[in-house]
Write a protein that binds this DNA or RNA. Sequence first.
DNA 1: AGAAAGATGCCCT
DNA 2: GGGCATCTTTCTT
Length: 230
Amino acid sequence: MGSWIAGSSPLPREFFDRPALTVAQQLLGCVLAHETADGLVAVTLTEVEAYEGAADPASHAYRGRTARNAVMFGPPGHAYVYFTYGMHFCVNLVCLPEGTASAVLLRAGRVIEGEGLAAGRRPVAGPGGRDLARGPARLCQALGIDRSRDGADVCDRGSPLRVLAGPRPQGQGRPTVSQGPRVGVNSAAERPWRFWLAGDPTVSVYRPHVPRVRTKPVSSPGAGDGTMQR
DNA sequence: AGAAAGATGCCCT
DNA sequence: GGGCATCTTTCTT
């Protein structure tokens, strides 16, 4: 089986020393591998989102550097792992040189190595493995990525978390990349900075941007005209 | 010190 | 389709 992953060289740091929009599209089809004491799990990336730094209201770095997002301001090729919604982890890859804060959120992938281990980590995933890493939090769960991987150098051959060039299918050119608005972003939602492999079943289902509506204890008058209230 | 929101996923109706 | 789980970060008193 594909033990080529263990001996393969990670992508060079220059790969990540580019704008997030470029890196995001180039990352599709590449391999993300995570090695733990339990074993190796690897996916080919099928869906990503680009986030700029200071110029992007949807970015965690928009309001400046904090203890949480410090890795985003560091050198390219490192993982920025954050915790959200009280239970989920998501992983980003930092782009551009130190001092800038752009990154690419990894949203989905297809498990190509360690499927048994990944399935054990995600017992609720259905058969077939399609849902093992569909969605950013699911991807982290399948790979066993948590905050201890924050700052990991994915360009380091000795790192437990690495990014490798994807296998080039014979007789095929570059995969067809689709593009659309980012998911779960209520600001700058008009920027089509989400990229995915067209037609891939492991891509997360598109949810049109519906901001979370807080339930109101009392109904206010004047809202009976059918106007959307949020 | 306290509160509110959050780059979500799961289960139930 | 919608509510809920669950907690960290950051902003506001």
